[in-house]
Computed example of a mutant assay.
Amino acid sequence: MNSLNISIGNEIKRIRQERNWTQSELCRGICSQAEISKIENGRNSPTVDLLQQIAERLHIPVSAFFINEKQKINFQTIDQDLIQLMRLNQYPEMLQRIDQYLMEAVDNNVIILLRYHKLIVKETTKIIDYRTCITQLLNMTADENMIEESFLMYLRIQMSIAILYTNNGEYRHADAIYLSLLKDEYQTVEYKKIKFKIVYNYIRNLIKQKDFTEILKETEIAINESNHLRDLSYLGHFYYQRGYALEQLESPLKWIQESYTLAYGIFLATENTSYATILEDHLTDLMYFSLK
């Protein structure tokens, strides 16, 4: 069996199972179940047209089927290396490291990642102003192929642009970006988790604007979706944001206590100690219990 066929088949099967779809649900109107079974097992090589139809049914770019595992690991390694330098405020070292990586990079996703990091660190260190940074980031996402070939980087860059707008008081511009991103369909579990991050940042933007009624609506939706997926990544934050909005709207005390207490419990369960400590230090009176 061809190694490329096996790789493509494994990826189709992984995404299908991630959504709890049967083979018959995936292939309906496209091909036979037997054909899908052979493709998933690496025994058949799908045509470009068939791959396109499968990708459209799964709401993902065709390029997702060709992601090389070594390239993915290399991307993640470089990304984490630069993120760690950013956290340590080692900006000169970070710029030097980016230039070194760029000299060796051949993978387009890695090149986009490096250009992105370089713009962010240059804005952070005031080498360029935030408007110049936004313009150059927008130029990166203007490439028509980017959404198809590097959707995750496209989302990341768009969110960074929105955060730059928020950090500089241009909340409406940030809102427009978040709302545009939230219109997209996020079919896989991985993409849905990214959607939670977008919603979290959008709500933070609403907090800056004191739009507490809208915050309650958005947190309610986000909490329900997080519980449906059994995902705790942002659930504690959503309860915290909900509690804050209820507090500002002078809602009944029991509603506020319930939200903050649930946030606190989730932060403890997920070992998010920094946020749990904030609740212990400042909001004990608005929770049912505290371990401090």
Rank of each mutant, 00 (worst) to 15 (best):
M1F: 03
N5M: 06
S7K: 14
G9C: 05
N10I: 03
R14E: 13
I15M: 13
R16C: 08
E18K: 09
W21V: 04
Q23Y: 03
S24W: 00
R28S: 13
G29F: 11
G29V: 07
I30H: 11
A34H: 07
E35G: 01
K38E: 10
E40G: 06
E40L: 10
R43W: 07
R43P: 00
V48I: 15
V48F: 15
D49L: 12
D49T: 09
L50D: 06
L51R: 11
Q53E: 15
E56I: 08
R57I: 02
I60N: 06
P61W: 04
V62A: 04
F65A: 05
I67H: 03
N68C: 07
E69D: 14
N74Q: 13
N74D: 14
I78S: 06
D79S: 12
D79C: 06
Q80R: 09
D81L: 02
D81R: 07
L82Q: 04
Q84C: 02
Q84F: 05
L85H: 03
R87D: 09
N89K: 15
N89I: 00
Q90G: 00
Y91I: 01
E93D: 09
M94Q: 13
Q96F: 09
Q96G: 03
R97K: 15
M103I: 08
M103S: 11
V106R: 09
D107I: 06
N108W: 02
N109M: 00
I111V: 15
L113N: 05
L113P: 07
R115N: 14
H117L: 02
K118Y: 03
V121R: 09
K122Y: 11
T124M: 12
I134F: 11
I134D: 11
M140K: 08
E144L: 09
M146H: 07
I147V: 14
E148P: 01
L155T: 08
M159L: 10
I161Q: 04
I163N: 10
Y165S: 05
G169F: 03
G169P: 04
E170R: 09
R172A: 09
R172L: 11
A174F: 03
I177E: 07
L179C: 04
L182M: 15
K183N: 15
K195P: 02
V199F: 01
N201D: 13
R204A: 06
K208I: 01
D211N: 14
K217C: 02
I223Y: 02
S226V: 00
S226Q: 02
H228D: 05
L229A: 06
D231S: 08
L232K: 05
G236T: 00
Y239T: 01
R242Y: 01
Y244C: 00
S251Y: 06
S251R: 02
I256A: 02
Q257P: 03
S259M: 03
Y260N: 07
L268E: 14
A269W: 03
A269K: 10
A269Q: 10
T270Y: 07
Y275F: 14
L279R: 04
E280G: 09
Y288V: 05
F289I: 12
S290K: 13
L291H: 14
